[in-house]
Structures are given as C-alpha cells and as structure tokens.
Design a protein around this nucleic acid. Structure first.
Length: 609
DNA sequence: GAGCACTGC
C-alpha cells in the first residue's frame, strides 16, 4: 500500500455480502460488516457497511487508506449514508493536505433519478458561486430492465378501502387469465398493517365462497414482518392446487425487503405506516400516511418482474399527482441524537453547518444537543466530553451507552447485567414473539410467567438472558420454543452481548473478561441488585419516566403527557408509584414500552449527580 | 389489549 493515499478501494454496500470465493483466496476482495470481517493482506477492494466506514472515519478522518469510495443505493437515504455523504463531500471538495495532496474519487450510484440534487450536493460551494454548478461531477446513465406495467387508477376517490380492494381483486380474478407464456399471474396487494391484512383476508375468503364453481379458486396469503418465517415462506411458494390463483396481502415488506415470485397484478392502497420522531414531544408516532410517487412506482414495478403486468391503484390519478416525489429521508424522521453525536465525535463543532442533503429542523438539532448535554456526552461549551468519546465506541444509541457507563460505575456495579438487558432490547424486534392462537397462549404464558419479574420488563429480559445462557445448548431450542422466543433475535442478542463485553474489556470498564457462561450457574438477581440496575438505566432514561396521577393515569415527568403501558409489557394493567420506559410510541394512544417500576424519588436522584 | 420495513461500530 502506498505511503500516502492508499491503493485500496472501498465499496460501500447495504449489508449484502458480495463474496467471490476465488478473488477472496487471492486476497483481492475483502469485506467488513458488524460481526464478520475478512480483509486479507493485499486486499484491493473492500465491501463495507455505511456504519463501518463511519467508524473508520473516527481513526482516519481523511480516509487515507482509500483511493476511491463507491456508495451504492444512495437514494435509500439512511442516516448513515447521509452522514457519510457529508463527510465524503468535505473530503472531496476540501483541502487535500490531509490526504497528502491525493484526491479521493467518489462514485455514487442510485436507482432513482435525483441527479441534479446529488450533483449539486457533491459540487464544491465555490463552483456554485461561479455559477458552474456540478461541473466537477460526472454523470452516467444505465437503462433499467422491466416489463411494461399498465397502471389503472380509480375514476373517483373510494369511500372504503377494504371494499375497493375486494372489488378490484375479484375483477382481476374473474377477468384476467390465470397464467400466460411467462408463467403464473398472481396478485400482490399492498396494505398498511397486520390488522388491515387480516380483515381483508376474511373478506376475500368470504367472497370467494360465493363464486361460481366454474371460476378458478383463490388462496390468500398474508405477509408481514411479525409473521413466523414458515408463514412468510408460504407466500413465496408457487401454489400447488391446480385452477387456483394466489393472492398475497402484504405490508411494505414486499416493496423493500422481499420479492414475491409469480406476481403480475399489483393492487396498491396508496398508504403505508411510517415511524416518525416528534422532537417537540420526545416521542415517535407510527401512523398510516400516503406513500410517495417513487414508492407508488416501486410498488407498480412489482407487477413487471416476470412479464408484462397491471397495477391497480385504489386512488385517483389526481391523488397520485398530489403525492410527494420521494419519501422523507430517515434523518428527517428519526431522533437526530445519534447523528449529532456521530458528527461531534468526528470533529464537527458546528453541526448546523455540516453538509447534509436534507437538514433536520433546527429545533430537532437543538433538542439533540440539549439531550446529549443532559447525558453528559457534551460539555457546557458544546464540545464532546471524555464520557461522550467513550459513548461513541459502543454500537448502541447514546442513552444506552450512558447506561453502560453508569453500570460500570462502582455505585451501580451492574455492567454485565446491563449488557444482558441491552443485548436483548437492541437485537432487532422483540425477542418475545407474539402468540397468535389462544391455545398456544395458555401454555406459552405458563413458561413466560416464570421469567417475569415484578420489577418489570428490563429485569424480565435479564432473567430471560441469564436463564437462556445457563441452559445447555442442546436444550436451548426447546427453551425458546416453549416461550416463543425468536431464535434469530436471541442469536443476535448473544452476538451483541459478546461485542459489548469485549468492548467493555477494551475500554477498561471491565477489568478482565467475564467467566464463560458454562461456569456460571443461574441465580435470579436480588431485589437490591435489580434496584441498582434500574437506577443505572435511569442515568440514560430519566426523561422517560412517568408518575401515577390521582386519577390512576401515568403522567410523564417530561412534558406532562398521559401515557398508557403497552399491552406487550409485563406491567400492562398494573399500577405502580412511578415507571421508567425505554420507548414511547403514539399509535392508537400514547404508549410506553419496555417498562419498569421505579420509585418517584429515583428520578430526581438520577438527574442530580 | 396491540405490533410498517430494514440496518449497525
């Protein structure tokens, strides 16, 4: 590798592994993702995730190790890719001295044409002043491949989406052929959520009963994330019965994450549930909103992957024209707490002037700065503190990182316990799956009750992790099955646990590596230890607390909003003096999730010291 | 009595 500006090329990928066995053996191609790294000596091309490259920026702010960076799928606009684009712009348009005078080449790839914006963003501000915008940015276009899809809009707004859906599905079913030379001609419907999907399934199945026996049959498959892997898998299988059409009722999962084969008809309800952070309320909402034009086009495209198709939009052409061009990028929809800390840790003192393709509201940034100050990550001068520098080393959000630091403090002394809990919580979806049938529920509840603790959800997660790791590996599958624990998420939790433990040793928060699980016997934590754990969590979540009001509702300490305990919590329906919750979501109501019982006096105590 | 979809140092 050269002395300055390396000869290594980094290809940024969104988690998709691109491993070519032969090249890898020769050491030409390497990759680096969260739990898996393979970068042999002599690597010329390295595939990394955005988060990994942001992490490398901490050590190597000018990316001197690389001669070129390729950013793929930039239109997906994750927070990480937005931050990375900002740093890349600074490197490309800034002073080359930090790279020994060697320029960095940046290639960005996008499936949708926001060409002008991207060109403008990566141009230096000087060229903008001279009116030669984008001259140093070259542009190449490659045609996509798709079969034609005919789009049909509703002539006028539909009063009832479910009714319109059933009507459209059976219009397709009775008027369009079951297959052609390209293969099956199945139907994929985009709906907003589980509830809507289950209602639609009932309606379609009821209506199907009334069909003339000469008409082909239909079989309905729901498809959403909370469904078990097996149930999801069913929706991908070609239908076995002859003379039958498959109808898949899906959430956005079928727009972004999976491809259902055989689809030639798409029915689009025009909406999707979106999570959006409300900086003023310090909480997020999950509500059905109109989709963007680009999302509608993406859904339409799902009908043309295997042959010419048709897309029926359950809204008018006028409504389509009123849709936003693109979805709101994530940085405008989430808490910018993490983004601000990421910038601060990489030397950005004035975060408001950092180049971003979309800037969050000033209020959102200010809230994040205040919150980071409360957490102790920023000092009174707004600069990152010693504590903040330690926090960014952990792959968890700032409040969790603060909890880990508190837990390592001798006053709380519960780092391993905090790691167990945070591993369970940050392992993706809840490790506890929802139980669908009533009979299953009874038996599962018997086992789950054993894990539950009166202190609430956090100590229940701790109990679960401790019971799990002290179970012999041959019995772990049964352990999970009985309690309906998602094995994939549990495996992820173990990975995170291992990573957090090793980072704790590296940062000297743990003096020595913890004993292997095989040498630890299970013992439920004492109420005294549970109290120390909850107090350590309050160091990160003192703002997310509520006290029981005289009318038996919980009122938040911050903002005085009424919150209800979510039904997924072990404390649902329970009245305690005060609660701490790690998540705060508005759906049908204002809900607190991941809830623990605390004493009201602990809140002020946590904010004080 | 309720759950759009991903990912990560």
């Amino acid at each position: 590798m050269g002395k300055n500006g390396g000869d290594e090329e980094v290809i940024e990928e969104n988690g998709n592994e691109r491993k070519d066995k032969k090249d890898q053996e020769k050491g030409l191609v390497g990759y680096s993702v969260r739990f898996d790294h393979r970068v042999p000596p002599g690597t010329k091309i390295k595939y990394v995730t955005e988060g990994m490259l942001l992490q490398e920026l901490l050590r190597d702010p000018h990316l001197r190790q690389y001669s070129a960076i390729i950013v793929d799928e930039i239109h997906e606009r994750s927070v990480d890719v937005d931050l990375l684009s900002g740093f890349l712009k600074q490197i490309v348009t800034g002073d080359k001295a930090g790279r020994g005078g060697i320029p960095l080449k940046v290639v960005v790839m996008s499936a949708t044409a926001q060409v002008e914006r991207i060109k403008k963003f990566f141009s230096s501000d000087d060229s903008l002043k001279k009116g030669t915008s984008g001259e140093e940015v070259e542009y190449l276009q490659i045609e996509g491949r798709q079969f034609p899809v005919e789009v049909v809009h509703e002539p006028k707004p539909v009063p009832d989406i479910q009714e319109a859906l059933v009507k459209t599905v059976f219009k397709i079913h009775t008027q369009e052929p079951l297959s052609d030379k390209h293969g099956k001609k199945d139907i994929l419907c985009f709906l907003t959520g589980q509830e809507e999907i289950e209602a639609a399934q009932r309606l379609i199945e009821e209506f199907a009963e009334t069909l003339d026996p000469k008409v082909p049959k239909v079989k309905v498959f729901p498809l959403f994330g909370q469904l078990s892997m097996e149930a999801q898998h069913e929706a991908f299988q070609p239908i076995k019965h002859p003379f039958t059409r498959k109808i898949v009722l899906a959430t956005n999962i079928a727009e972004t994450s999976v491809t259902v084969p055989g689809v030639r008809y798409v029915v689009d309800c025009g909406k999707a549930k979106v999570k959006q952070y409300r900086p003023r309320l310090g909480m997020e909402s999950l509500l059905a909103k109109p989709i963007s034009k680009s999302s509608a086009i993406q859904r339409t495209g799902r009908a043309g992957r295997e042959g010419p198709g048709k897309c029926f939009r359950l809204y008018t052409a006028e409504t389509f024209n009123t849709l936003q061009k693109t979805d709101l990028p994530e940085i405008l929809r989430t808490d910018v707490l993490g983004a601000v800390l990421t910038m601060k840790a990489r030397g950005i003192d004035d975060v408001l002037s950092f180049p971003l393709m979309d800037r969050p509201e000033i209020e959102a940034v200010e809230n994040a700065l205040v919150h980071l100050h409360v957490l102790g990550a920023l000092g009174d001068d707004g600069r990152i503190t010693e504590m903040g520098r330690k926090m960014v080393l952990f792959p968890v959000t700032a409040p969790y990182a603060r909890v880990l630091l508190a837990a390592a403090d001798p006053r709380y002394d519960c780092l391993l316990e905090a790691i167990d809990i945070i591993s369970c919580i940050t392992a993706g979806d809840d490790i506890f799956m929802q139980v669908r049938s009533e009979e299953d529920k009874e038996s599962v509840d018997v086992y789950r009750k054993e894990l539950q603790r009166r202190e609430g959800d956090l100590i229940t997660y701790l109990n679960t992790m401790q019971r799990f790791v002290s179970t012999p590996s041959s019995d772990r599958a049964t352990f999970c099955k009985q309690r309906r624990i998602n094995v994939r998420n549990m495996r992820q939790a173990l990975n995170i646990r291992k990573q957090l433990r090793s980072l704790s040793v590296k940062t000297k928060m743990l003096e020595e590596p913890p004993a292997p699980d095989s040498e630890v016997t299970y013992q439920p934590v004492s109420p005294e230890t549970a109290e120390r754990i909850l107090k350590a969590f309050l160091k990160g979540f003192a703002m997310k607390t509520a006290v029981l009001a005289p009318d038996s509702s919980y009122v938040t300490a911050h903002g005085k909003h009424v919150v209800a305990i979510h039904p997924s919590s072990s404390l649902h329906g329970v009245k305690r003096e005060a609660i701490m919750f790690l998540e705060h979501v508005y759906t049908q109501k204002n809900y607190a999730k991941k809830v623990s019982a605390i004493q009201a006096g602990w809140i002020a105590e946590a904010l004080a010291a």
